[in-house]
Lab assay of single mutants.
Amino acid sequence: METPSQRRATRSGAQASSTPLSPTRITRLQEKEDLQELNDRLAVYIDRVRSLETENAGLRLRITESEEVVSREVSGIKAAYEAELGDARKTLDSVAKERARLQLELSKVREEFKELKARNTKKEGDLIAAQARLKDLEALLNSKEAALSTALSEKRTLEGELHDLRGQVAKLEAALGEAKKQLQDEMLRRVDAENRLQTMKEELDFQKNIYSEELRETKRRHETRLVEIDNGKQREFESRLADALQELRAQHEDQVEQYKKELEKTYSAKLDNARQSAERNSNLVGAAHEELQQSRIRIDSLSAQLSQLQKQLAAKEAKLRDLEDSLARERDTSRRLLAEKEREMAEMRARMQQQLDEYQELLDIKLALDMEIHAYRKLLEGEEERLRLSPSPTSQRSRGRASSHSSQTQGGGSVTKKRKLESTESRSSFSQHARTSGRVAVEEVDEEGKFVRLRNKSNEDQSMGNWQIKRQNGDDPLLTYRFPPKFTLKAGQVVTIWAAGAGATHSPPTDL
């Protein structure tokens, strides 16, 4: 069977082979063929449309019947899901209200924590001031004790010197008594010597008188005998007598002179000795008097100093007792304040721990409710997609609110971060928990396990030699990294520990 286009092609070929045509004729024939082709295509399209309309009418009838069946089946399910969705919305509203209440309680707890922290800071300042005052008082007490020990040692030294001076005074008084006794003995010996000298002088005078009498008696006897002796021998006898008398007189005078000289010499020697002894004793007595006077003056001065030191010692002891009493009071006050502060800190920690436990429990309940609501929403969306139902505006708002919801909680030295990733086909969620104590904190952990970043959050360098970082993902083997023995993380510095297959460059001390 030939198509209209094939017939047109045969006809035009025959005409062209029979007679030659002009260009205008050819153009018109071409346009006519195009119109015929378009008409044929339109006829085919109309036939196809008619057949499709016939099929569409049958399909519409089948769809109508199916919609009636589906509407009867879905009406009950939709009512049940609407009821469950209403319950879920009520639960979500109650959870939102509970969350708002918990946020209010958390803000209240934070305000109480700030207030307690301020009070604690003030108490710590008072405690530091009390400890500083206690240290000052202890230093003052130590200085006073040192001064007291010095004063006591000086007192003992002065008492020793006073005892020595008293012994010296006793010795000097004994020496003075001995000197006085020697002086009295010398004076007695001097008086005795003077008496003996006077006696010797009297004896000498008496001997002179006796010698004169004997001489006169001898002259008288000789004169008497001379009268009786011969005149011839008188001159010879007289001359001999005169010579004998002269010789006797000379001898007697020599003896008297020698005895006189010896007596005067002895007397002068004894007198000089007595005078020297008297002068020496008088000098000793003067020196003893002077030394005794000086000793008395020094004793008086030392007694005055001793009394002054005793007064100072009594004042120091009184002040020391006052300082000890004040120190005891300060210690009791400090202990009482410290006990009160520790009790308040313990109560505050217990209260904060209780509130944190309650908040953690409520947060766990909220997370469980969020997971249940998310599961209900997934089931509802799956059924709506299976039944090709359009979601209600309320469910769209709930989905938008659930997809944009995120929370971040800080308290008790722990930080909890939650992130949620969404897509049109599926939804997944993960959470990161970080707890830090000390100078070094974990700043970031790569989700794909490529690196771990640490930061020194203090103002001092931290030695991290032979420290270890351990990481384990589920049931995978435990991964451990040990820092070099001499590694030190500077204040405020960040160090990144890269995985072996991350392709990073080893560049200490920032990249390991």
Rank of each mutant, 00 (worst) to 15 (best):
V256G: 01
D192Y: 03
Y259A: 07
I229V: 11
I210R: 10
K233C: 14
E247Y: 05
R216K: 13
D205I: 02
L183S: 07
D185F: 00
R189D: 15
E264R: 06
V191E: 07
E217V: 13
A250F: 13
F206K: 02
E217P: 09
A269Y: 03
L226K: 11
E264P: 04
K180R: 15
S239E: 00
A179G: 01
Y259F: 12
E214L: 01
Q246N: 15
N231Q: 11
E186W: 12
K265W: 13
L215W: 12
R225L: 03
L197E: 03
E194F: 15
R235K: 10
L226T: 13
N195L: 06
L271P: 02
R221I: 12
K181Y: 11
Q207A: 15
Q184R: 06
S239F: 10
E217Y: 10
E262Q: 11
Q234S: 10
V191Q: 02
A244M: 02
Q198S: 07
D205W: 00
K201C: 11
K233L: 05
R235Y: 14
E264Y: 04
A179K: 12
N273W: 01
R220I: 14
Q182S: 03
L245C: 03
Q182W: 00
E228P: 06
Q207T: 13
E223L: 13
R216I: 05
F206W: 03
T224K: 07
R216E: 04
R240W: 07
H222P: 12
A193N: 12
Q255N: 01
K233Y: 02
Q182H: 09
Q198W: 01
L245M: 01
Q255C: 06
T218D: 10
E213Y: 00
S239P: 00
V191G: 03
E178M: 12
E203G: 04
R190V: 13
A269G: 15
R240V: 12
R189P: 02
E202W: 01
N195F: 05
Y259C: 04
D272I: 15
L197N: 08
L226H: 07
M200P: 04
A193P: 01
R235C: 11
M187Y: 06
K219L: 11
R196N: 00
I210A: 03
E217F: 09
Q234C: 08
E236H: 04
L245K: 04
E223W: 01
E228F: 09
E262C: 14
L183R: 14
L215K: 01
E253K: 13
T218F: 12
R225I: 10
L188T: 02
Q182D: 14
K265A: 11
L197P: 04
Q258S: 15
E238Q: 04
N209K: 06
E264M: 00
D185T: 10
Q258G: 09
I210C: 01
E253Q: 02
G232Y: 09
V191N: 06
E178V: 00
R240A: 13
R196A: 01
I229Y: 11
N195R: 04
D254Y: 08
L215R: 14
S268V: 15
K219Q: 09
E213L: 07
E257H: 13
N195A: 05
R216V: 15
L263T: 02
F237A: 07
A269Q: 14
E262W: 00
Y267R: 00
E238R: 11
A244C: 05
E238V: 12
S268E: 15
R221S: 06
L204Y: 14
V256Y: 07
L188H: 02
N231W: 06
Q207C: 03
L188E: 00
E223P: 12
G232F: 08
S239N: 14
K219R: 14
E214V: 13
E186Y: 12
D243E: 10
K261N: 10
M187T: 14
V191A: 08
D230C: 03
Y259T: 00
Q246R: 12
L197G: 13
K261Y: 09
K208T: 01
L271E: 04
R196Q: 06
L245H: 02
L204I: 13
E213C: 10
K181C: 14
A269I: 09
D230H: 07
R196M: 01
E262S: 14
E178R: 07
K233A: 15
D205P: 02
L204E: 05
D272Y: 07
R220C: 15
Q234T: 00
S239Y: 12
Q207V: 14
Y211W: 09
Y267V: 06
D192I: 04
K260E: 05
E262V: 03
E202A: 00
V227F: 13
D272A: 13
L197Y: 12
E217H: 06
L248V: 03
T266Q: 07
E238C: 00
D272T: 15
E264D: 03
N273R: 07
L183A: 06
L245D: 05
R220M: 14
D243F: 15
Y267C: 00
S268I: 13
G232V: 07
H252I: 11
R220W: 01
L271N: 05
K180T: 13
L204P: 02
D185G: 10
S239G: 07
D205Y: 00
A250C: 15
D243G: 13
E253L: 05
E194K: 04
E186G: 11
V256M: 02
T224N: 15
N231S: 12
A242V: 03
H222L: 09
L226F: 06
L241S: 02
K180P: 00
A244V: 09
K233T: 14
D185E: 09
R216H: 09
I229K: 09
D272F: 13
E257L: 09
F237D: 07
L188K: 03
M187H: 05
E217W: 05
K208L: 11
K219Y: 10
Q182L: 06
L215C: 03
A193Q: 02
S239V: 13
L245G: 06
K219E: 08
Q255H: 02
I210D: 00
D254N: 13
S268C: 14
Q258A: 15
Y259G: 03
N231F: 04
L263C: 08
Q258K: 12
Q246C: 08
L271K: 00
E228R: 11
R240C: 09
L241C: 04
L188Y: 01
L215P: 03
A193V: 14
R225P: 10
A250M: 14
K181A: 08
Q198V: 13
K219G: 11
E217S: 12
R240E: 13
E202G: 09
R235F: 11
L215V: 11
E202P: 03
L197C: 12
E228V: 05
Q198N: 06
L241R: 08
L245E: 05
Q258F: 09
D272E: 07
E264F: 13
L271Q: 04
M187L: 10
K201D: 01
K201N: 06
H222T: 11
S239L: 08
N209I: 00
K201W: 04
L188M: 03
A242S: 15
H252K: 04
I210E: 01
E257Y: 10
K180G: 00
T218L: 15
E253D: 00
D205T: 12
R189I: 15
L226V: 08
G232P: 08
R220H: 15
R220E: 12
A244E: 10
L226E: 15
K180N: 09
Q207S: 07
E238W: 03
K208V: 00
K201S: 04
K265F: 11
N273F: 04
N231I: 10
F206H: 03
E238T: 04
L183H: 04
K270D: 00
Q198L: 15
D185N: 10
N231E: 10
Q184M: 09
Q184F: 10
E186C: 09
